[in-house]
Nucleic acid binder design. Structure first.
Lengths: 216, 216
DNA sequence: TAGATTGTTAATCGATTAACAATC
DNA sequence: TAGATTGTTAATCGATTAACAATC
């Protein structure tokens, strides 16, 4: 019932990874202390994050690795598969199709669309690129859960509108552009431009030229 | 002097984009109100963010579009170029090399390394893939500012260590793995797996099976 | 001048951290 | 039992929002 922050969900992903590793290493039980160390956070934070969803540990002992991993898997919804349609068959679209982690995570790319005649008909991964004009009909027949926007910025909003109108439940946006969509549709952005600009900021020492001087 | 939050920097990127568009549309002056609307935030937030760096507007009038854009450009450090070395010439590495936004943002990919003999020698974009064993010598000669980790997770930490040891100032990490590096080296992560898991969480309604029931 | 809008201070909100009783 | 570690409540911290005097 309490709203879960995006930071908490991000950390759950981290814990999930760490637990998979620990399990592979043959670890049986882990404390919030050790789990925190592995992912660069604090024990209190680990316990607080988990407490939003239930009690998964045993006082005095810690957490059963396999059990906690299954629970987080369920919490994150990774115990089912999602049908994904990608719009845009450029560099990013192609990289996504070649990315094995995608399907390992339960995401099946079942369709790719583009509007460039040169790209339509090409085969990426296991699917053939179709004309975006066919997207509406395809959606009716194939029930996409998630739409991926991998087009240039100027067309991103129109593509998002189209995906919303055919009923996707979520959009993953790779275009460096703010998308406006109804609150009922989940939206996450993977923005390389923003990461670069963040990095550039971190690398730039001489900011705040307008700051007051020492004697002020 | 006050520490600037990553959220603030992210929003500066958004404002920068919006200003570029407004300028292209011929807009001369813009209020915090209109700027906020375009990027889905609030006028107070816009003014607060900018106030960390100086006073760029005029009371009663708003902000001069071209001027504010230049100022944010300077704040973000986008008025210079960075020398980037990419390690890992797989799907992601290839997508980066094909990504025009990279160089448009001031980031020049001057070298690509891999350890796969099949990939060494291939030409990606304008550069030839070199053996990662040559990275140390190349760094001495070519002075990389930024290292990009685009390898599979198991080698990501070792690659990061190598990049730190040859003196890069920042690392951009695409591997779904927490990297531990010295505080003096800036780190940003672009994590597709995390975005997917976040989306999966948002799509999953039946969480918190361990939550107390109504009568408790 | 009157209306508009900034820059900044104060109030609110939410997330992180600390502390500790419960209990294995 | 004694030591360890959870789950949860309280304290702290930081970021967002609201309010308003300054001023174009």
């Amino acid at each position: 019932m309490p709203r879960i922050s995006e930071s908490t969900v991000r950390r759950l992903s981290h814990y999930y990874r760490a637990l998979a590793e620990v399990e592979a290493e043959g670890g049986d039980v882990i404390s919030s202390q050790r789990l925190a160390e592995r992912e660069g956070t604090t024990p209190a934070q680990v316990r607080k994050d988990l407490s939003h969803f239930g009690s998964f540990g045993r006082r005095g002992l810690g957490y059963n690795v396999a059990h906690l991993r299954r629970e987080i898997r369920r919490i994150l919804g990774l115990d089912r598969r999602w049908r994904v349609a990608v719009v845009g068959a450029g560099h990013i679209g192609a990289a996504l199709l070649g990315y094995r982690g995608f399907s390992a995570q339960g995401f099946d790319v079942v369709a790719v669309f583009d509007n460039d005649p040169q790209r339509i008909g090409q085969v990426l991964g296991a699917v053939q690129v179709r004309d975006v004009a066919e997207l509406r009909a395809a959606a009716a027949a194939e029930a996409f859960d998630i739409g991926v926007v991998a087009t240039p910025p100027p067309t991103a909003q129109a593509v998002a509108d189209l995906l919303v109108s055919v009923g996707v439940s979520a959009i993953l946006n790779f275009a460096p552009r703010k998308l406006f969509i109804p609150a009922r549709v989940a939206l996450r952005n993977v923005d390389l431009t923003m990461a670069l600009e963040n990095l550039s900021f971190a690398l730039t020492p001489a900011r705040g030229s307008r700051r007051r001087r020492a004697q002020d």
